[in-house]
Amino acid sequence: MSSVYERIGGEPAMAAAVEVFYRKVLGDDRINHFFEDVDMERQAAKQKAFLTMVCGGPSNYSGKDMRAGHKHLVERGLNATHFDAVVGHLKETLEELGVPAELVGQVMAVAEGARADVLNR
């Protein structure tokens, strides 16, 4: 079966989704301090890689990378509440872009699977 990534349109869909998603995250005072970056293009590229991964697209992320990449944020207080907020924005983003509920559910399951690694548990 083809991935969600392929079924919703591949790279162009990710490019469209990342701006919507990044805007939500950056506008959310509960979590935006984890996403502040002088280099907004670099931050957007990271988030595009994240969206691509949770949608089952081509990705180089491993669980180990997820742990290492979020360790400094966990030290700064990243917790389950923040994780839930990000996942909420992810869900809203996909819904706004018209992704069918069944596919959104699949993406949510992948994202949930990354919880332990992201939170370094």
Binding site: E19, R23, L26, M40, E41
Partner: peptide, 15 residues
């Protein structure tokens, strides 16, 4: 410049 760029992005400017 950096503050304004962020605000413009949040209002809907594309990066």
């Amino acid at each position: 410049v950096l503050s304004l760029r962020k605000k413009l992005f949040l209002t809907g400017f594309s990066l």
